[in-house]
Design a protein around this nucleic acid. Structure first.
Lengths: 218, 218, 218, 218
DNA sequence: TATGAATGAGTCTTCATTCAT
DNA sequence: AATGAATGAAGACTCATTCAT
């Protein structure tokens, strides 16, 4: 993460104390995520974050040098977990790529039903104007990795004949991810009625189209 | 799925002296959109909006009672143009639904290449936490309408045999919209390298998958 | 009235136009009195005064150079009427001073029942901190005149034997005015239950005490 | 009928650094009283109050949520002291009611000579239009209590024969309080020449009239 | 480590006042 | 004589951040 790239984000001086520094920061970040997504980065108040984390406002500054630093650390932390999960998943399924894709989609659909899962990407979208480096970081660390893994899967599918060879890999990845993403935004951001409450069926339908296409087969 | 390219999105150079008062609100909204998307709603300063619109800070309050009211009016105004465009488009193509869909997608891909097009939906996403009613308004007035129109098109396609009858309409709409939306977010929010600079090809590939599916035909 | 005594009150330049200047100003002053007493001088908005007077905000400035000038003119106007009324009254009754006093008190009690009557003195009290010259002007032009007239009456009463000669004139005036004033403040400012709704009785009781004293006569 | 001379009405020189937080609210209220009475509630600036109290503007908001809240707290605080003083005084003198009344009047006259004493009632009058509840609060907590105590005294006087039985108690109270109140307003609000600089004589004269009446005894 | 107290630098909002018409 | 439009200056209130303890 480009931690000092933003000119207003001073690098935090490696602190000497940081004793219980393993427990506290995480609590703070959790609280911050909640506040940031509820009210937006600017509108979120350090005091509320502190209260939610069970600290005093001033104590946050023992762990993070500024509000922006909290945001950065927050993204960084969430990204860590995510990225590796994805790679594992994708690598797991080179044997039978299509089955692997269906598993991935099912899992994704399940997790996207919980609204907290979308919190981070939503936050990233909302602050992307003010913190482009964070958006970029998220893209490279999360989305691009996931995309890469998915594309590898699709290539594997093409290799073993489950997927037509002439298909553009990027387009296929997009066709796979896009609908799920759309449903997630629709549900959690725009608060529309969701198809996510029956993930099994959602994925079933999606895969039918994805694999067989809209047109009737000859 | 986006939006009338307001030709005034860039604020015009502030004129030295007063002009027709009827133009003012629109100028203010254009300036506001620019500031809101650049910095976020909270971080945008009324003074900057005013300056960009060529007015004094206080003058904005002659037209809108508060910052939040500017936001609301902004969304409302943009939504107005959008919604009707969409319906027109969709209704236009019941004769040959599949061709119509391809046209719509091509047009969308073209327009999404301009980054200003995504400004409003992005703004909606970023403020959806603080102003859920606005998000809902946007959903019902824009997204739901567009979705409805598209679903009608798909139903027409099913009726005339161009689309398999057993396909779920909602899923098909999702499969159509999702990838385009994903590419737009990818490009403008996450700033990844875009496929949008060759919209023709993008749509070509997308439709190939959408119509024929990933699997080889028997 | 010390019209330019306050350094912040510029003397208004004798205007050339002032054509319908006889009707408008009075309407403005009436509206101003209402707003000033309802909200206080500072909190009263020129726009509300204008609206109440049936003009545009800007039009007030054709008649008065500033908000403070409106206040001054207002006091000046109200004082004019009051002062002469009082003198007339007092002079009228040198023949039978005690009867005259009773008449004055009765009339005062009647008029003080209307809450609008107290509006000006109340306003004077409330702005006395910020505009000491106005307070002084009011004292000299109204209260001192009234007091003078009343003291003359009391002196006349002493001369004709209706009032004990050894009584201090100022103290007698105070004893006469004070209770009425108190009742008025009590009623209109502090909103207590009033004795003013039976002015006849009020004055009866007051005069009994005033003339005969609290102690039993020998 | 006024009030405990708060010895801190003049703001103390602001100390360089923090002191006991418990003292702060009181300091703020003292400073606020000074500013409110000098300029009026609306015209008084929070910054000036803060400066006078030796704090920053923002610090006031640690203790009071708004300017109006400062006003309310101010009145409440001053009222607290006052009310109990009055009751004590009045109860003290049931043995010899007339002597007690003379003592009360003397004390009142003495205290009214200090201009700070009238500050609170004056403030109450000036804001009564905008904050009627405060005026009412002041009436019930202060004026009505004082009046009640005084009326009890007068009733006691009637019972022991020092005051004529047929006299209306309320009227007598008014006749007692009114002149003192008038002199106070006259002196401190209208800035007339005062009789208060010889309180002894003032009370002497007042009581002569009050007890014996204006008319010569037979 | 932790915090209560404090503040400087803003931001929205209001309003008396001006001016072109 | 009148006003719709505009603004400069000001004020209440907020909040990230600091500091003494």
């Amino acid at each position: 993460m480009p931690s000092a790239s933003s000119p207003k984000l001073r690098a935090r001086p490696a602190p000497k104390w940081r004793r219980r520094a393993e427990a506290r920061p995480e609590e703070i970040l959790d609280a911050a995520l909640a506040e940031f997504t509820a009210r937006g980065f600017e509108a979120a108040r350090m005091e509320d974050i502190a209260k939610a984390a069970g600290l005093s406002k001033a104590a946050i500054y023992l762990y993070f040098p500024s509000k922006a630093a909290v945001l950065e650390a927050l993204i960084e932390a969430k990204v860590g977990t995510l990225a590796q999960q994805m790679e594992t998943l994708a690598l797991a399924g080179h044997a039978d790529p299509l089955t692997a894709m269906r598993m991935i989609a099912t899992m994704a659909a399940h997790r996207l039903a919980e609204s907290s899962i979308l919190a981070v990407p939503r936050l990233v979208i909302s602050i992307s104007g003010r913190f482009p480096e964070i958006a970029e970081y998220y893209r490279t660390q999360v989305v691009e990795k996931a995309r890469g893994a998915l594309e590898a899967l699709i290539d594997a599918g093409k290799a073993c004949g489950g997927i037509r060879a002439e298909i553009d890999t990027k387009a296929a990845a997009r066709a796979f991810i896009g609908p799920i993403l759309f449903e997630a935004l629709w549900t959690h951001v725009l608060q529309g009625e969701t198809a996510l409450n029956d993930p099994q069926k959602l994925i079933q339908q999606q895969f039918d189209i994805l694999l067989n296409g809209l047109e009737p087969r000859a």
